[in-house]
Design a protein around this nucleic acid. Structure first.
Lengths: 340, 340
DNA sequence: TTGTACGCGTTATCAA
DNA sequence: TTGATAACGCGTACAA
């Protein structure tokens, strides 16, 4: 059995109240007793029972984190679970602020019969982070009505207590397209993520806007993938099947994984990147630097995004701001060519 | 305020005991009352307070997971934190078995003044998983004396309640060397991880054994890196500095990241892989498939390793087995050449 | 079958 | 300055 304050009290023949006060450094207790208590506590290797503390304080000091997959229906290769990237920042910031991180994921079926919110309510978590939330998630309604703060990465949901931490996609898309445009590209295709990710819709919106402004928008050049490499590969095949004259000279992919798939497909057909077609990705994953050609991409700072979620949840003063945008940056590597 | 069983009891004008029994489907209570209670619970959107349950049951249903970095002193790029790879398996298995996952990492300074064990004791976790534990960690002693089960990935520590889940490194090293040997390589260098990782020592041991058996061991061909790409790069420079006649024809690297760094260094010097030198890595990270030449490597199944940690912790029947080995496999790609 | 009383380990209130 | 008592929400012996 564990040592409790009762054991300390017994040993010193004083009340548990005094022990509690001493250990909590309250000032309505003598220094002398404090020292005695602390020494005995150390001797006995006492550690407080946080469960009891949480019960009486009505404060769990815990934040729940859900790492959902961008594509739940498929078996996840761990490398593709983009969500884990945010954990470094989340952990760092929550430790700093004294919160425990309760980690959930929902590959398992078991968890499904309880809603996210139920899971959180039972554990009395004081905030929730979601990554990879889809627009067809059955629990969106519940999320929007939440009474505890919920920070969602890359998805904005209306709700008094929900906030969105995301990349400034408008900025990112414009960076990518400005760059391609400056290289002389006019027929720029987009390989987008699936419709159930809000960022897909956002990125498409700004892609459209940009090209419409330039009078170069062509709806036949928009392809729908699902963020995976495989989907990039098959979208590229469709592009290859286009008539020569209709082929884009550049492709903007909504994820690096898809960009890699696209490059692979082209390589398999003997089409050269960037000589025959230029490609810009999104995410800046590690691999992008090592493929050939290395991938030009829009870089998101995943660590900072993770940190921001915890900041937003734990700091009421910024919580009125429902959308936090982080500026992405363009990483220029080898996958684009000047065709002017 | 949250709804409690007291609220349900009040509403039905019965005792909390009956409510508790009904909700827990005990058989010393009438079906009728059960139904009534459950209906009201649903109406009120009641959810049990797990904190209270845990206090009274003296069971936290929680497993603590520490994701330490292989190289704490450097700023961690998230892509390099190999530890996250195990999370998929850990989460899957713990959900299946009804355990919560409390996630820790120790980049933050704050956490340092409390030992891992203290952190765990306070939270009454029922098991602990470590990844990235170093042999110079100040808390090893404490870990070995733990009263709760501790599963350590890739490190074996003596202790009644500690177990090690690891790759069968003997098998892996032999696979790599057998392969290189079969291609005609006799001068095989090793670029190892740092000494504070137990797997480094293990891998070195079997590397030595193998080459000694073949009468080909040369201690000047062993280089110490620290698993990072940068260290691979600098080890490669030392190899390049060797006199022509002493240069290895093949290199066995203890991590894919180092292998990538090695390839980079060679490329920078105009040395060709695999034409001039063959390379085998370890880990099978995602990027290995996409670099040029693609990387031949020993593949570990990180998901399964994660699963095993939870199995080992929660299933007493296998806990007497202090070492669980998972068989790695050789992934042959382009980075090795037959020189016979 | 139902309910009373107590305990889990801690903190807070208030009286001594 | 110290301590007795109640409370947090729930489960369980035991009594009714």
């Amino acid at each position: 059995m564990s040592i409790t304050i009762k054991d300390i009290a017994n040993k010193l023949d004083i009340s548990v109240t005094s022990v509690s006060k001493a250990l909590n450094d309250r000032d309505d207790i003598s220094e002398k007793l404090k020292e005695k208590v602390k020494r005995v506590a150390k001797d006995l290797d006492y550690s407080p029972n946080t469960i009891a503390q949480r019960l009486v304080n009505k404060k769990s000091n815990t934040i729940g984190v859900f790492v959902l997959s961008r594509q739940p229906e498929k078996k996840i290769k761990e490398e593709e679970n983009f969500g884990f990237k945010f954990l470094t920042g989340i952990l760092e910031e929550s430790n700093k602020r004294g919160y425990d991180i309760l980690l959930f994921s929902t590959n398992s079926d078991l968890i499904e019969d309880k809603s996210y919110i139920k899971l959180c309510k039972e554990r009395k978590v004081e905030g929730v982070v979601f990554t990879g939330l889809r627009l067809d998630d059955p629990h969106l309604e519940e999320i929007s009505k939440s009474e505890i703060p919920i920070a969602i990465i890359d998805t904005y949901i209306e709700g008094e207590n929900v906030g969105c931490i995301t990349t400034d996609n408008k900025f990112g898309v414009n960076q990518a397209l400005d760059y391609l445009w400056s290289l002389g590209h006019r027929k720029i295709a987009m390989v987008n993520g699936h419709k159930e990710a809000q960022i897909s819709m956002t990125r498409l919106k700004y892609y459209k806007k940009y090209l419409n402004r330039k009078n170069c928008y062509n709806k036949n050049l928009v392809f729908e993938g699902d963020f995976t490499m495989e989907s990039g590969y098959s979208c590229a095949q469709k592009i290859i099947d286009l008539e020569r004259g209709n082929r884009p000279t550049a492709i903007f992919a909504a994820s690096d994984l898809m960009a890699i798939g696209i490059i692979k497909a082209f390589k398999d057909k003997g089409i050269k990147v960037p000589e025959d077609v230029s490609i810009v990705g999104f995410d800046n994953i590690f691999t992008g630097e090592y493929i050939r050609p290395s991938l030009t991409t829009i870089s998101q700072n995943a660590i900072e995004m993770g940190e921001k979620t915890i900041e937003w949840i734990t700091d009421d003063s910024i919580r009125s701001n429902k959308k936090i945008y982080l500026e992405p940056s363009l990483i220029i590597r080898e996958s684009c060519k000047n065709i002017k």
